[in-house]
Nucleic acid binder design. Sequence first.
DNA 1: ACAAGGAAGTAACGCGCGTTATTAAAGCGC
DNA 2: GCGCTTTAATAACGCGCGTTACTTCCTTGT
Lengths: 340, 340
Amino acid sequence: MATNKTHRVTMSDVARHAGVSRTTVSFVLNDKPGAAIPDETRRRILEAIDELGYRPNAGARALAANRSGWFGLITEIVTGPFAGEVITGAQSRAWGDRRFLLIAASEGDPAQEAAALDQMLEHRVEGLLYATTWHRAVTLPKAAREVPTVLVNCYDAEGELPCILPDEVSGGYKATRRLLDAGHTRIGFINLDPAIPAAIGRREGYERALREAGITPDPALVIPGWATADSAYTAACELLDRPAGDRPTALFCGNDRMAMGAYDAIKERGLRIPHDVAVVGFDNQELIAAYLRPKLTTLALPFEAMGTKGVDMLAALAAGQPLDTHRVTIDCPLLERSSV
Amino acid sequence: MATNKTHRVTMSDVARHAGVSRTTVSFVLNDKPGAAIPDETRRRILEAIDELGYRPNAGARALAANRSGWFGLITEIVTGPFAGEVITGAQSRAWGDRRFLLIAASEGDPAQEAAALDQMLEHRVEGLLYATTWHRAVTLPKAAREVPTVLVNCYDAEGELPCILPDEVSGGYKATRRLLDAGHTRIGFINLDPAIPAAIGRREGYERALREAGITPDPALVIPGWATADSAYTAACELLDRPAGDRPTALFCGNDRMAMGAYDAIKERGLRIPHDVAVVGFDNQELIAAYLRPKLTTLALPFEAMGTKGVDMLAALAAGQPLDTHRVTIDCPLLERSSV
DNA sequence: ACAAGGAAGTAACGCGCGTTATTAAAGCGC
DNA sequence: GCGCTTTAATAACGCGCGTTACTTCCTTGT
């Protein structure tokens, strides 16, 4: 017969074993300011804790202190590399603050999302992080209003909630600038779906960099596409098959998968990377960027930093402090590898 | 001044509002068997719950019921695609059972791992899932013995803990069999580090399939390597540069990144996939397999299934039931795409 | 008319802990 | 010796809820 009631060691057990009251044990555990505990007593208590293998019950503590210590993190999909980075960043920061992350994946299903939110509220999360896979607008279930919420990689259409976004413009600028610095003047841009924020921002950065270098952006060099290798392959073929003087010597791709497609088009033509055509990607999907041959120079989406920043903001909100900035953008670092 | 004490609605509030006792509310909430609640009363209570926006406090409930509802999940790295799948699988199963997953990433750091474990025990997890990125032996901190534990994608050297592993042998068999069925008889095998379980198991399956087809395995066709595209590129070059009759017409690669390297070697030689050389990968890293050109036929590691199975086993253990199998292996499904 | 039994509901305890108010002892100046 | 402060420690309440034991009222059958 298995003991169903896992009778664990409680604070009272520790108190008895140390010959003090439970209150005293609580005081040394939380080393309460103002409580005068002589070293000898403290030592006895710590010893008892050690001997009995006592562990505080986080749930009971939360109940008594009226402070759950939980932050919630809702993501769409946890399978991709992005959510993982957000989790990593958020988790590391949260743990440092002795808080914990309650993670849930909605799988893009509103019902699951609502259920997850309910669960989080029942667990009395003190704040909520809502992260998406790609930069876009979202509308949250209204239950999210019950608790401080910060959006990660997305924003609400009403602009009411604080959000953390990648700096797409600066990203596009830095990619283009890197190619300009390498001597390229005709730079093709195989963009994402031109309707999404990432595509708009990066194009703005791309054009700004060109103008700064005294080059008038040529719309013919910008090809909108979808986020697939095939789409980028087609686009790259179109750009590379232009007459010699018209052909770009560098390609800036909307993401690393698209860079994969571009690589194929370049290699098929017997051109060499980066000698004949330089390539810059976006997203830094390690699995791709670090294993393409040659390795891909690309910009990283700062998911981990966004995660930590999100927890920071949440902590401030949960403490009742006002936010200095409602809308935070975070820089996308350029990762130099071998394709430029 | 923000109200720091988030005075939320409690069960007593609901009771008062519905004109009944708190006990009665508790009874309808848990629809306690044996409690006779007339429909009218039940309706009034549910109405009060709705009007007041009451949400049960999960922490308090756990404390009173002496049942936390938590399962812990410790992974090494949450950034890769694998951990995400385990989480997805475990989460979906756990939520169906009204349990929740407390997730922590150790980042491969024993100190963090121990800290995570402590936190989980303080939260009174009823079971622990310990998952690794790659199939191997592990030794757990001894604190893990305090709670039912199931290993995912790894096993303990002592063989004491229940574990869930991918069926490497069957995976190697199916990959090879697929190539044999396509008419190939000389099949190169660019393996992982030959010391790890995945490499050993898959090679066993590879050779079994060959023998079943009446082919004596040729050790010269098996090249051990490391899990990188470069390593596989070199190996593929060696195999493909052999004299015509000796050259393999198909390559079975230890993972998808390695298949990427093999693709390069094949394409460089003007050979076509799958017409001249067929390729099968392993791991089904979507980012690679689905975007290589042509798309890669590969075997999937059943991480999601391993996650759900893990929760199943944990639930059984937590309920005090004995396990039917101590060591579970799960099949690796073959994903047909276009490289064979 | 009355006991028996069920239906409807409640008071009260405990889960493990944080916290406040209070007590008991010890130190100190005079 | 007496008041007074400081030190050391505790009793007791409440956090929000599950649960047991108990009470009250309403049916039935005879």
